[in-house]
Design a protein around this nucleic acid. Structure first.
Lengths: 127, 127, 127, 127
DNA sequence: GTGGTCTAGACCACC
DNA sequence: GTGGTCTAGACCACG
């Protein structure tokens, strides 16, 4: 289901969150749909259940999913909106990154080039 | 001298490295110039000497500065070149960041806007 | 596991690095294998964890090992190549040493004898 | 007089000792000859007098020179012998160096080559 | 459990 | 005074 790189330096639980968000943005996971159980997902991805649980907890605290005790986790109605709203923060972080790069002597045009040279569909899937 | 944010999630020793690089790029620290001593800088920034030492060691291993035990640390002749060369890697990381942002549904134009709206001088100092 | 001499003038953390490199060259530590944990090794060698950490950090920065925070440190695929390439520098240092010895009046033949009289297996283990 | 490299990582006081020994081995400084005063040498080489003093003290303790209070330092009668005898220790250190190099996977033949490729006169002067 | 960062304080060699 | 190494002990994020 989700694509996880266990050797990446970005925490696995963040990768899970990113993947869930990506699936929601792309419409693969729709509001009301049930998430895979923590146990199943941890087995499928060969991950520690605690790691999956941490991702689910974060998604739950951000109201992107909600858990029904004894039944499972489900996608919230306004999950997409919350994610898109969260992108504001990401853009803020992005600005900080850009600022640092410029301060270390990199030209703005180089950054623009980096963005343009990426061949990625707008729906988020790799070409 | 250097601007450090102890609350940032980026390690203090990396902030020191970034600041030193920035000063070198801006020409404030020139080749052959002596760096502030580990002890002085640690006092000035209210840091543990080991933290400053770690930053200096990394700069030394990257040949941006060189240390003469018992005398002090000095800016290397080709410090600027090494730093600019290191920016290649930073651009590579930047691409990864951009890729993730686009995959989470952010439009390229928004990223371009983020770059353009920054009011930063080309020499790296904040306005 | 590793042989450390706490009384040597060569820093302990460098001794650890040398031992790790030796084990990799000899094929005892293979690519992908997990390194002993920082804590375990520090206990086993009766060292401070920070000392071991410093050795591991250096090995990581030289790409001989790579660390996955929360999981452990692993031998890189091309660790052996990197080490052998690093030996070029060692030979350069060796030349400097030889030069000084000759300048202090030692005959080249004596140096050749020193090399030949060593009883060391080609795989690096003491007889 | 002496060639000192203040940027070298080999301690200055050791460089002084090495230079004095080299001059004695080459016959430039003969037994009974007076050494330059600590003060003069420190001025001439732009060094801290303490550094020169440390070198002289070590040479004195090894009986290579002897000091006559109020007059100066002089080369001992058997200075050359002492130096050549000291070379035994250097050869012992050299063996240790060679052992480590071989243990890190360097072939003996490469070390022999390093020795042979040096174009240095036996009397210690560079060609 | 893992690695990573930081502080506090010590000792050393060198200048 | 300088940089370099080491210990002790703490805290954090991550699995």
């Amino acid at each position: 289901m989700f694509q996880i790189d266990p050797m990446s330096r970005v925490p696995i639980y963040e990768q899970i969150i990113d993947e869930v968000e990506r699936f929601i943005i792309n419409g693969i996971l729709k509001p009301g749909a049930q998430m895979p159980s923590v146990r199943n997902l941890s087995v499928e991805l060969s991950l520690n259940p605690n790691t999956v649980q941490k991702a689910y907890s974060e998604l739950d605290s951000r109201k992107i999913i909600f858990s029904v005790p004894g039944k499972g986790c489900y996608i919230s109605e306004n999950a997409k909106d919350i994610i898109l709203q969260g992108n504001r923060e990401k853009l803020s972080d992005f600005k900080e990154t850009v600022k640092k790069l410029i301060m270390s002597g990199i030209d703005k045009s180089e950054l623009h080039d980096c963005i343009d040279c990426l061949n990625i569909c707008d729906n988020g899937d790799k070409l």
